[in-house]
Nucleic acid binder design. Structure first.
Lengths: 196, 196
DNA sequence: TAAAAATACTAACAACTGTTAGGAAAATAA
DNA sequence: TTATTTTCCTAACAGTTGTTAGTATTTTTA
């Protein structure tokens, strides 16, 4: 009967995780029931368990996929032959584009990770902390270089990361400015706020 | 028997709402059960209903108290004989201090309002939108004055508001810089990012 | 101290939660 | 086509949810 659609490049599991991300973003992880998800996917709740092992697993999938993507990006940026402020801008732009293009997953990873179970929760928190420290290190380098104004680097990281998450409001707003303008405005204000 | 503590200036209801805010902040509204709350308050779940009418009412209380506080602040700031950038700074500092001192309530209002019921949800959204528009108007005035760089005002508002919500990470972090330094750093970066 | 009001308790409800068992139907492989 | 594997279904489970009813106990008022 009603069968989950799947193409060559997205397994049934992928479809479930994607729809789950959409619901988790909209209602939150806890407020989303497996029956909600099943309905969205077009299937009975029990059928989901042929493709995933638990609700928790879906959240893990979302959070760690996103975390890995950000981590591998910052590693690449660190290696570039650019000065620090340019690196900061590159990282920032990556965040903005991720938040624009992979809105649901990135947002869920950011807001719902608290509901991860052991041992995934501490694991995720470690990755998160490590990422922020690397980001802060780039900023500190820029301060030493004299490119970036003297500022508490962890605070600057916190500002940038949270500011970007505001793109959620942009997505939900009726009259949106174009995505590329959003990006330029954010870079203008945030990089501008760091520049000496 | 075990009775809810209450002083002259905080009713039993206030105590419940305050503890609820703490739990909602920690675990989220949906993931917090009335039995969790009862335990924290030191009472059986049913007893809570002598003071509140529903779980939903607690969230309403939190969200609208905070919203009103911000709204009345911006009204005062608008009347001050200051230039636009100074007004922006005043509003920003108020947000920062609220987020530092009334952490739990402000954070919950910001993150959990989606779980408000009709007719409170649309009501809250309207207040929120109105607030942001007033904030944006101050920025636009500053752009016309030539005090603030040419930027999309709604985007700037979005950046500022979300950046401030990052103070949650500051609260949870082990080695915090002092609150006043946090404030100065945030102002330095965000107002700096707006200044022409 | 007695009466009234406020606050607590226990017990229970219906609805909903994530998940499993077992079997039917559909898709794929032989 | 037939055999096998994949996917779906219905039914049910044990636990949790917010909330109410009815009653006992404590606090406040008179």
């Amino acid at each position: 009967m009603a069968k989950i659609k799947s193409s060559k490049h997205s397994t049934r599991k992928d479809v479930i995780v994607e729809q789950a991300a959409s619901l988790f973003r909209e209602k939150g992880y806890t407020a989303t029931s497996m029956r909600d998800l099943a309905e969205k996917v077009g299937v009975e709740a029990a059928s989901l368990y042929n493709h995933i092992s638990s609700k928790a697993e879906i959240l893990q999938e979302i959070c760690f996929t996103v975390a890995t993507e950000f981590m591998s990006n910052i590693e690449q940026v660190e290696l570039k032959p650019k000065n620090s402020l340019e690196k900061v801008e590159d990282i920032l732009r990556f965040h903005i584009r991720m938040m624009i293009n992979k809105y649901e997953t990135v947002y869920v990873s950011d807001r719902e990770w608290k509901h991860l179970n052991e041992p995934y929760l501490p694991n995720f928190q470690n990755q998160r902390r490590a990422y922020r420290q690397r980001f802060a290190a780039v900023i500190e380098e820029g301060i030493r270089n004299g490119e970036i104004k003297s500022i508490d680097a962890p605070t600057a990281v916190l500002i940038v990361l949270h500011a970007v998450s505001g793109i959620e409001s942009w997505h939900r707003s009726k009259r949106k400015i174009p995505a590329d303008q959003l990006e330029e405005n954010m870079v203008l204000m945030l990089v501008g706020g760091l520049k000496k």
